[in-house]
Amino acid sequence: MVDKDRDQELIADCLKGDRQALSSLVRRYERPIYNVSYRMLRSPDEAEDVAQTTFLKAFENLHRYNAEHKFFSWIYRIAVNESLNQIRRRKHTEQWVDDQPAPGPGPQSQLEAHEVSDDVQQALEAISDDHRSVIVLRHFAEHSYREIGEILQLPEKTVKSRLFSARKAMKAKLDSKGFER
């Protein structure tokens, strides 16, 4: 879990122009933000673009950040929104990302991971954007219901019901693929 007090210290230093603090904030969040973006988009290139855009928007508007709220809620919200925007652009231009393997350490392990997880990733891609958002934040960013609510600006009760619906949708997609573990 992210140390929120440390976030606040780093943000305060960033606002004084401290690029070392900026670097530390990027280090703290680049991995989860990239993972969230990738799981939303299933495209390494688009996930990298979204991750970059997320940080740029966050830091360009850092002076607008309200310290009463958590920094991670803010930056994850930007990442999710940017991913959803990218999905809309993709639909608009009728581009479709297909069969793009997840980035991994090497071709062989990448292939094995692909074999194991391809059905799951395709099922994730096949559910609605709203469902995928809560699934990704819960499973790949490990946020609590309350934190997901803060990120997506939804009541916690809505998060719970949406997550339940999302999992049922995932289960149906996995069943249709004959997925078993």
Binding site: R31, V116, S117, A123, L124, F140, M170
Partner: peptide
């Protein structure tokens, strides 16, 4: 199933 997707 979701846990089977490795962190990237």
């Amino acid at each position: 199933a979701l846990d089977s997707l490795p962190p990237l």
